[in-house]
Amino acid sequence: MTRVLPYPFLSLFLLAMWLLLNQSVSPGHIVLGSLIGVVGSLAISTLQVPTARVRRPLALFRLAVIVLTDIIRSNIAVAKIVLTPGRKANSGFLTVQLDLRNEYALAILSCMLTSTPGTVWVNFDSAKGELLLHVLDLVDEQVWVDLIKNRYERLLMEIFE
């Protein structure tokens, strides 16, 4: 099983992408898509990527909902900043001490923070556990630290560690 399908979820994902791209669920396309899924995950396995262990898959959906609402909220916030005439954005860099060490969790956190308008992930010092962020509306640093620590990091640690 593990030799033929080293990353079963990746294979499923590739199959789903193939079917979406061709907009059909005919048997021929399912066979072709499965072939692509198997070959793709075998190709990835030569890179020897460590597999992730998701402790609580249901919490992933909760995380997705939280991220979606935050993206919508901060879209409105950034749009307001851009549209207010004469307003100077008090942007700045911010350091947050993280307890998170799992590589997949950090990767997800970085994509979450960067795709949320208003925050950009700049650097992570894995030796010190220090995350360097750039924030557009840096009025109160503590608000952003609390947001990342309590809203994202706790949930990610629940899921991955």
């Binding site: 993206i71 879209n75 950034v78 749009a79 900043i81 851009v82 100077k88 954005a89 942007s91 860099f93 960067t114 795709s115 949320t116 308008p117 208003g118 925050t119 950009v120 750039h134 557009l136």
Partner: peptide
């Protein structure tokens, strides 16, 4: 916002409105 904001690091933020 890409046009209006005054330094590069601030300008990184507004285009994410379009891409999300």
């Amino acid at each position: 916002g890409l046009l209006r904001l005054d330094n590069f690091y601030a300008r990184v933020h507004p285009p994410t409105l379009g891409s999300t």
